[in-house]
């Protein structure tokens, strides 16, 4: 299938599309934690690295089949998300942010000293099983499940926690449990994205999952509009494309990237799509109907 696509699409573009897909899975996971539930996580790359290393080592050194090692990587990340979430999600706002940064840094240092992971040199020779089709099929599944979750009971409860924790408790929501749950789901997607990344890149090292990567993912969620799936898709696409587009300005690339973040936030402080959800669009249509009836 990919070789078929490669006849029509330039490999360079195909590669960008794959990267957008992987970033989408990562960002949608972070969106559940930060965008929807409102728990600021600045260490998402840490979960990504757990998924990447777990799956890469399983398929390289233990001969696990591709999908099984992907799943194992995602589950391992989810397990860590769960274990870290329990004691830390009592912390509020920026304290939690700091703990997530710290956790990701510790994970990075761990992999820098991790013999089976090749220490600072990293792992190379990971089988390149991740293809365009696999990535985008998974992206579609993730988006559909995500959308369903967010418009029903548990998803609404996640939003409620973000909006007002005390009121959420008064509605019978066990906020601590649900925060840990959101964190676990988000970490699972982080691990999944990491596994896909490792099996696409052929080569991973601890620096790939440093603080900047976490920040990049957070930018994708906030830029599009917190908690909105279309927003996350838009933000991820723009910020994955931006460095590529900015290649023309060569070494000034990051300068523009930094300035872009500031400018976008000044002009669209609540993200590009604000908090647009499906019913906003429905509402718009509804209003039109009413108006045409009147006129």
């Amino acid at each position: 299938m990919d070789s078929f696509l490669a006849q029509y699409i330039d490999p360079y573009y195909l590669r960008i599309l794959v990267l957008i897909g992987i970033n989408l899975i990562l960002a949608l996971g972070l969106n559940i934690i930060t965008g929807v539930t409102g728990q600021l996580s600045m260490g998402h790359a840490g979960f990504m690295s757990i998924g990447a290393y777990t799956s890469a080592i399983l398929s390289m050194q233990f001969g696990y089949p591709y999908f099984l090692s992907l799943l194992a990587g995602a589950l391992m990340a989810a397990l860590f998300g769960f274990l870290i979430g329990i004691p830390t999600l009592r912390l509020e706002g920026d304290y939690l942010a700091m703990v997530t940064i710290g956790f990701a840094e510790i994970i990075k240092v761990f992999f820098l000293n991790f013999e089976p992971g090749g220490k600072a040199v990293g792992l190379s020779g990971i089988p390149q099983n991740t293809t365009f089709v696999i990535v985008w099929v998974i992206v579609l599944i993730v988006i559909i499940l995500n959308a369903r979750l967010l418009r029903t009971r548990m998803g609404r409860a996640f939003y409620a926690i973000r909006e007002n924790e005390i009121a959420a408790e008064s509605c019978g929501i066990n906020t601590t449990r649900l925060k840990v749950l959101a964190f676990t789901i988000g970490s699972f997607l982080g691990g999944l994205g990491g596994g896909l990344y490792a099996h696409y890149m052929y080569f991973i090292r601890p620096q790939d999952f440093a603080f900047m990567k976490s920040i990049e993912l957070l930018n994708m969620v906030v830029l599009g509009g917190m908690g909105s799936i279309p927003g996350t898709i838009l933000g991820t696409t723009i910020l994955t494309l931006a460095p590529e587009m900015l290649r023309v300005v060569a070494e000034y690339r990051l300068l523009f990237y930094g300035a872009l973040l500031v400018i976008l936030m000044i002009f669209r402080p609540n993200g590009l799509l604000g908090d647009i959800r499906i019913y906003d669009i429905k509402k718009r249509f509804r209003k039109k109907e009413v108006e045409t009836c009147r006129s």
């Binding site: 609404r156 939003y159 409620a160 909006e163 007002n164 005390i166 009121a167 959420a168 008064s170 908690g227 908090d275 019913y279």
Partner: peptide, 11 residues
Amino acid sequence: FQNIRLFNKLS
């Protein structure tokens, strides 16, 4: 609640 506590950005 005395000081209203709604989920502002939900419908």
